[in-house]
Each structure stands twice: as structure tokens, then as C-alpha cells.
């Protein structure tokens, strides 16, 4: 099965890359972008066939490597 992991900066953590995106969108004429936050998307192809076990595995992967929980949050989507 596939796991899709989104890693995003926690609220309140300065995101200079998001700010730069926001400013550039504004200068391209896209009005009304109140905020841009940049994150990461990681797709994993897993041998595991049980969704709950897969989620538990990926959660462990996020804690140990994929996210730095000092500054980042993560979400996991498991697809059959």
C-alpha cells in the first residue's frame, strides 16, 4: 500500500521560503494570497498490507526521520 506524508512547519515557526513565495505570487498579480507556507510531501510504497500496521510504521518513520518535531507537524494518509 501507499503512504502519503505531508510535513509542514508548525504555526508560529518563521517560514522565509513561504514568505518569498507569497511575495512573488503578489508581484505576479495574484491578489488575495493571505499567507503561503511551504512544506514537504513524501510518498512511500510499502510492503505492509494492513492499513493500521502501515500507519503505525509510518508514524514511527515520521518521528525518527521524516519530520523534526521541534518545528514540524506531519500528517499521514494511507491508500490501499
Amino acid at each position: 500500500m501507499k503512504a502519503k506524508v505531508h510535513v509542514t512547519l508548525k504555526n508560529g515557526v518563521l517560514d522565509p521560503q513561504g514568505k518569498a513565495i507569497e511575495h512573488t505570487l503578489g508581484s505576479l498579480g495574484f491578489k488575495g494570497v493571505k499567507q503561503a507556507r511551504q512544506g514537504k510531501f513524501i510518498e512511500l510504497d510499502l510492503a505492509e498490507t494492513d492499513a493500521d500496521k502501515a500507519r503505525a510504521q509510518v508514524d514511527e518513520m515520521c518521528k525518527k526521520l521524516l519530520a523534526n518535531t521541534v518545528i514540524e507537524n506531519y500528517t499521514i494518509d494511507i491508500e490501499g
Binding site: 515557526v13 518563521l14 522565509p16 521560503q17 518569498a20 523534526n68 521541534v70 518545528i71
Partner: peptide, 16 residues
Amino acid sequence: CESGLLPGVLMRNAHL
């Protein structure tokens, strides 16, 4: 910092 031996984290420079 990444190994947990020191507190905190080093992020992208504020002015990129």
C-alpha cells in the same frame, strides 16, 4: 541538533 544531543534546530537563514 538532529541527533537530539543539543536542543533546538537550525533553519534556513531568515533572508534566504
